[in-house]
Amino acid sequence: MSDNFAEGSNKDTNSSSLLKLEDVWKIYQMGETEFAALKGIDLTISKGEFVIILGPSGSGKSTLMNLLGCLDIPSKGTVFLNGKDISHLGESELATIRGQMIGFIFQQFNLIPTLNTIENVMLPLEFQNADPSSAKKKAAELLDLVGLSEKARNLPSQLSGGQRQRVAIARSLAVDPDIILADEPTGNLDSKTGTYILDFLYDLHKKEGKTIIIVTHDVTLVRYAERVVHIRDGLVESIEERQNN
């Protein structure tokens, strides 16, 4: 069903727009009071872009990221994926979209602690009912790509932070998604490892044309980006186009 989303269609004027947010609000209800974490965001991300969303803590970056990643739906406004409105979809349809089109990388790595490295990488394929032997083959290739073939049987707890994040990258690539979303991917890593991770993602973007969206408050990462979206208090403050290499 999500092929509809993958292939894109009709309606949207800009054919290259992959994700489009129109006047998106996210309002959290906390007992009596309401809190607007996003207050009317307009943002378009095109296929094959490398975008960094930058902003101070509490500005609403992760909230925005959840909407871009189809993990949540807006309180108000519309989110388009490949030209199709996904703002009102149910959880199972969103799960299918996420499972087939989006790869996630988290600050805390979020590997499944009871599964070993290769099983973690296979997991997104298993959720898509992939054939076990081809899933295993694909996972082994991806582990090789991130240089962790010899750790295939190790549990996450037996890996360093940088190694865990490389496993997480391999996992995010398992279903060959169009979009890679990373929330503070270098937040728990030293600068050398962080650089390795960013270089790796940049390579993917250059060689395979993946759309990469990184959320961070680390300004040193902007050098990788083609576009930097500055967020403050739930609003887009400015968008900075960069000439890269």
């Binding site: 990643g69 996420r98 499972g99 996630f104 979020n110 997104p124 959720f127 279903v175």
Partner: peptide
Amino acid sequence: GTMKAIGATN
């Protein structure tokens, strides 16, 4: 949460 993010259905 992680499993759901990477495609697990309910």
